[in-house]
């Protein structure tokens, strides 16, 4: 039984085992489903954390090599265990709440930022038949559940009781709302081509990756994704030189770790969405689907990191100009042209 190359079967097998287990201990099937979903969530959370660790290590190494440094080298072989050491350090630190903070909102904010990204991740197909939660309107789902993250950032910024945090939170929210418009508009062309909102169906519909038909939409999506995740060159929400660390200035310990986790999970979700919508998802020759899925996604993530370490930061007004005066009109243009071509070809 080689499950390495058939994740769909492995996934189904795991669920089946869980159901059998549930009936063995005389739980009703319904409870079995719930326990099953719960365990799937825990499994996903673990996968999520591992992915984030790889990304953090990758980011530090890539950054280092782009700047002719070595990066982490001391803990483990070439610093491989550095991230684990960092996580342990963060977990052992005191979870501090400033005196001026709005206690409950301050405590809740990191989770409000993290959970939407995680919820979006479960609807993205990793291989044929491997979707932790198959949602009919998958695309709308990932766009919708991703939105409450902004509120988490605003909560963090406001509840910290610190002007840097407040400014960072406001900038971040303004930026995320502005770039959500081109992000959503750029995706509409893909929906028109595929005729479905189901992410698995969109991947199946791609005889050739949609980046061929929708190159403009792909570029808009990529730029808007970088802005949505508040990363360089769109990182004025946490511009170190003027805002200390923006909305998470007052955070430390595990809560800070959650902000970190959220940033990388959101990056992964947007990259995975880009792969699913424009690059043919799990499809590819020779190798199994999930390998293609992860290879493509990490390819996009490498682009994210490349941007971060090579572009200078945009000014606030340049950022708004790019979003509203360049990307949004281009996305509308793309939509109109796609619609016209589809009607003419009919």
């Amino acid at each position: 039984m080689n499950y390495i190359f058939d994740p769909a079967a492995a996934f189904a097998w795991c669920l089946e085992q869980l159901r059998t287990l549930a009936t063995l201990v005389h739980l009703p099937v319904m409870a079995g489903e719930w326990v099953g979903s719960f365990l799937v969530m825990i499994g996903l959370f673990t996968v999520c954390s591992v992915i984030v660790m790889i990304l953090v290590y990758g980011e530090r190494k890539i950054a280092a090599h782009m700047q002719s440094r070595l990066g982490p080298m001391r803990v483990g072989w070439h610093g491989l265990l550095q991230v684990i050491a960092d996580v342990i350090k963060l977990m052992l630190k005191e979870s501090f709440v400033p005196a001026a903070a709005d206690n409950w909102i301050f405590r809740a904010a990191p989770y409000v930022v993290f959970i939407p990204g995680f919820m979006a991740l479960i609807a993205i197909p990793m291989d044929r038949g491997v979707i932790p939660a198959h949602v009919n309107m998958g695309l709308l789902y990932i766009l919708a559940v991703g939105t409450p993250g902004v509120i988490g950032i605003l909560m963090a910024g406001w509840s910290s009781g610190n002007k840097y945090s407040l400014l960072g939170g406001m900038r971040s929210a303004a930026q995320m709302i502005s770039y959500e418009v081109p992000l959503v508009m750029s995706v509409l062309g893909v929906i028109m081509l595929a005729g479905s909102l189901d992410l698995a169906a969109i991947v199946e519909a791609q005889k050739v990756p949609y980046i061929i038909y929708q190159p403009l939409a792909f570029i808009i999506f990529l730029i808007a994704s970088v802005a949505e995740t508040n990363r360089n060159p769109f990182d004025i929400p946490e511009a170190e030189s003027e805002l200390t660390a923006g909305f998470h200035t007052e955070y430390g310990g595990v809560r800070f770790a959650y902000f970190f986790l959220a940033e990388y999970v959101n990056m992964f979700v947007l990259s995975a969405a880009a792969v699913t919508l424009f690059l043919g998802g799990w499809k590819g020759p020779f190798l199994p689907g999930w390998v293609w899925y992860f290879a493509k996604t990490f390819g996009i993530l490498f682009l994210f990191m490349w941007f971060r370490w090579t572009f200078p930061r945009l000014r606030s007004d340049q950022l708004m100009d790019l979003g509203w005066k360049v990307l949004t009109p281009l996305a509308f243009l793309n939509l109109i042209v796609t619609g016209l071509v589809l009607v003419l070809l009919k």
């Binding site: 949602v135 009919n136 309107m137 709308l140 789902y141 766009l143 919708a144 559940v145 939105t147 409450p148 902004v150 509120i151 605003l154 406001w158 406001m170 929210a173 303004a174 709302i177 959500e180």
Partner: peptide, 25 residues
């Protein structure tokens, strides 16, 4: 009502609430 639920989140949580926070500020 899947569609309605998702649109409600997208519009109310994603836009109205954020704009509400801005208005308060």
């Amino acid at each position: 009502a899947e569609f309605l639920a998702l649109v409600l989140i997208l519009v109310y949580v994603g836009a109205v609430v954020v704009l509400g926070v801005f208005a308060v500020m």
